[in-house]
Amino acid sequence: MADPAYRAAGEGMLRIEPLGELAAIFDRRSQQTHLVTQPMPEILAALAAGPCDAAGLAARLADSFDLDGEGDAAAILTERLQELTAMGLVEPV
């Protein structure tokens, strides 16, 4: 299966509150709370610019993160994106 692109929630749908090293995310659509660590909030922020796949996301995040070895980064991001999909926070398009 081709690497899918993912879409973030619409603007204003998520309320993100940093809690120390964690972030609490309230999803206004589902009314659910998700507690996440870095880099989840950063992924969501990067996706806000528009849907993209894991490789595209790695490129967007490279500006603000030190991602060693591009292949690795995309694989890790794919896992994170699948976790965010299970939470309903992002959706494959």
Partner: peptide, 13 residues
């Protein structure tokens, strides 16, 4: 109600 509609959205996905 929002929680219930989210289940519909999850079913759709």
């Amino acid at each position: 109600t929002a929680q219930a509609l989210w289940e519909a959205e999850m079913a759709r996905r």
